[in-house]
Simulated assay, not measured.
Amino acid sequence: MSNIQLIIEERPADIGNFLVGRLLPFREKRMVGPFAFIDHMGPAKLSDHENMDVPPHPHIGLSTLTYLFEGSIMHRDSLGSAVEIKPGQVNWMTAGKGIVHSERTPEYLRHSEKMLHGLQIWVALPKHLEQGEPSFHHVEAEDIPHWESDGVQFRLIAGEAFGRKSAVPVYSPLYLIEIKSTSAQTINIGSDLFGESGMYILEGNVSNDGHIFGPKQLLVAKDAQLCSFEMGENTTVYIFGGEPFPEERFIFWNFVASSKEIIEAAKQKWTAQEFDKVPGETEFVPLPKPRF
């Protein structure tokens, strides 16, 4: 019997002046473990007059994880962080009770052609930390655990798995794993995963129980303990998941919380422009109107 519970197709979403492929949340599966939101950015070729410009906007109750395959993003936040994100690095920004950040094409690339391709992920915080102090961590590519086994390349981007631990300071039991193979391979994860588990196919194909799945599909497993699948040639997948929280999580715009009251308070605070500002940036994004 197949271990696949749900297949989620990537859906287009507009984040301002940039189109992404949305994977989570999905109406039938709002979260996978603590993972509450996943966007696939690109691959997009931007001309010499096209740039990524996501102006200062707030977050609460989550950690954002940015992981690029191609291109570069300049991150600035209300803590004073100003870091260029490059492929293979991990930007891990924890909002807690509130943080504001912007994401833009770096100045030196704004007048040249460039590519942008990567993942934007939100990981919800445990209830006892969701109103904590915000923080920011940037992890270099060489500090991400990576290894090869039988011709298959692995990177443990965040969390713990396979007896290894990523340098990304996560706050609940989880994992985000990159697996690449240039030749057809059988992958047996066995008991190394836990909680809820999903697999995003970036390129190539994956076979399971006689079914073939391709790029831009997210497969949600019935049981993380029984993960075995076939990878086709030149395939890259991302396996993610972890222990789900006992409480429901509510999402409005960029806010994630275990109660609607916390979200309402954040909405009022943002409308009153009482969040800390990103140094040197003055743009203000109005609170979006609720969708009915």
Rank of each mutant, 00 (worst) to 15 (best):
P43E: 10
H111V: 14
W253K: 01
N3I: 11
E10G: 10
S102V: 02
E140Y: 09
E230P: 05
F35C: 14
Y108A: 15
L23T: 06
K260W: 06
N234R: 13
D276W: 09
A221M: 15
H40S: 10
P169C: 08
E160S: 15
I239Y: 00
W122S: 04
G159T: 04
K260Y: 05
R110I: 11
I73A: 02
L287F: 09
P106T: 04
E160Y: 15
Q153C: 14
H146M: 13
P55G: 07
Y108H: 15
G96L: 00
S207A: 15
A167C: 09
I251A: 13
N51V: 08
I73Y: 04
K289C: 11
E28M: 11
F26E: 13
T235R: 04
E196Q: 05
G21S: 11
V54Q: 03
S259P: 04
Q268K: 08
N254K: 03
E247V: 09
L218V: 10
S112A: 12
S183Y: 11
F250E: 03
D192V: 12
H146D: 13
G163L: 01
H75M: 09
S207G: 15
M115N: 10
L79N: 02
V206F: 07
L62E: 08
S172W: 04
P58H: 02
I144W: 02
L174D: 04
S228V: 15
E274A: 11
I263K: 01
S197P: 09
F162I: 00
T64F: 10
A224C: 09
H128K: 14
F35L: 13
E283H: 11
Q153L: 13
E140T: 11
K180F: 15
K277F: 14
I4W: 08
E50D: 09
E107V: 14
G21K: 02
F252P: 00
G210W: 05
D53P: 06
Q153P: 13
N17R: 10
I4M: 03
G241V: 05
Y200E: 05
L219S: 03
V168R: 01
A184M: 11
S47H: 04
V285K: 06
S197A: 10
L125Y: 00
G190C: 07
V285M: 04
N205L: 12
M41H: 09
H111P: 10
L176E: 05
L116E: 00
F35H: 12
S135F: 01
D209C: 14
M52K: 03
F69T: 07
